[in-house]
């Protein structure tokens, strides 16, 4: 694998994560618990669509193929996606969706902060560009989780359950492959150290919410190895329907 190929594949990891996350969040459209939240969730979805597009467009020149962001989004199958599994996990209730956003945002915030100091100009640009939105997502989701944790007995128990369930997707965020090795000079982070920082922040926040981190050792991994859960196929099937059904059409 060349450095450019590693950059291509590394960027697709975040592009795909953003896209699948965006698609999942868009499922909330007209289904929010209050109108304000309907708008907030679709707004976060919109941010993720924008980020996916920016990551795809940055990745394409490194891949050296004749393709567009839409080709990458709409013409690849389940075993060709590199997204982290947390993105494809179903939304569940509002607490679970907020938990997904929160745990992923803390992670992406660390990654994009590191990238925004990268000597590699494209990675640097993407880090800077994405960070602001991710920090807003973290603020929004943490504020809601805190309120729900200190709301009613039902809401607290739902958040606790969400933490328990989503936790099994978090080790996947820290898996690495040959791309990380090849790009170690320009990524400006070391994954084990980053996991410690992530864990400390999440643990501290959950403590404020009145929860301890789950003791479960059950974790599923495989997103960047293109080994997904059964959920991804359904997400893609719906998203890619028109492009697949009318391959010669332009929309």
């Amino acid at each position: 694998m060349t450095t450019d190929q590693a950059r291509y594949q590394y960027l697709l990891r975040f592009a795909d994560t953003s896209l699948v996350m965006a698609q999942r969040l868009a499922e909330w459209c007209s289904r929010g618990p209050i109108l304000e939240e309907d708008l907030a969730l679709t707004n976060i979805s919109l941010d993720y669509f924008g980020q996916a597009e920016a990551f795809y467009n940055t990745a394409i020149p490194f891949g050296g193929k004749q393709e567009t962001a839409d080709d990458l989004a709409f013409r690849r199958s389940e075993r060709e996606y590199f997204n982290f599994l947390i993105a494809e996990a179903d939304n569940g209730d509002y607490a679970r969706t907020m938990m997904k956003i929160y745990l992923l945002s803390v992670y992406l915030e660390k990654i994009y902060t590191a990238l925004s100091t990268s000597s590699q100009p494209e990675l640097n640009m993407l880090g800077v560009k994405s960070l602001k939105e991710i920090m807003y997502h973290k603020r929004h989701s943490s504020a809601w989780l805190f309120r729900l944790a200190h709301g009613t007995a039902e809401s607290a128990s739902r958040v606790q359950q969400a933490l328990q369930d989503v936790w099994s997707y978090t080790d996947d965020l820290f898996s690495t492959d040959v791309c990380d090795e090849l790009l170690s000079g320009e990524l400006n982070y070391e994954i084990t150290a980053m996991k410690h920082v992530w864990l400390a922040e999440v643990e501290e926040f959950m403590k404020q919410c009145g929860f301890v981190l789950p003791q479960t050792t059950y974790q599923i991994q495989g997103g960047i190895k293109q080994m997904h859960t059964e959920a991804l196929g359904h997400v893609l099937c719906e998203m890619q329907y028109l492009q697949r059904a009318y391959p010669n059409a332009k929309w």
Partner: peptide, 29 residues
């Protein structure tokens, strides 16, 4: 928001998705 939301997951390009989502958000707003 419902009839339009019915197509938000199947909008056929990234651009179309962004525009439709933004539009539905406008309606909610």
């Amino acid at each position: 928001m419902q009839p339009e939301g019915n197509w938000v997951l199947r909008a056929p390009s990234l651009r179309a998705k962004k525009i439709l989502l933004a539009k539905i958000q406008d309606e909610g707003g």
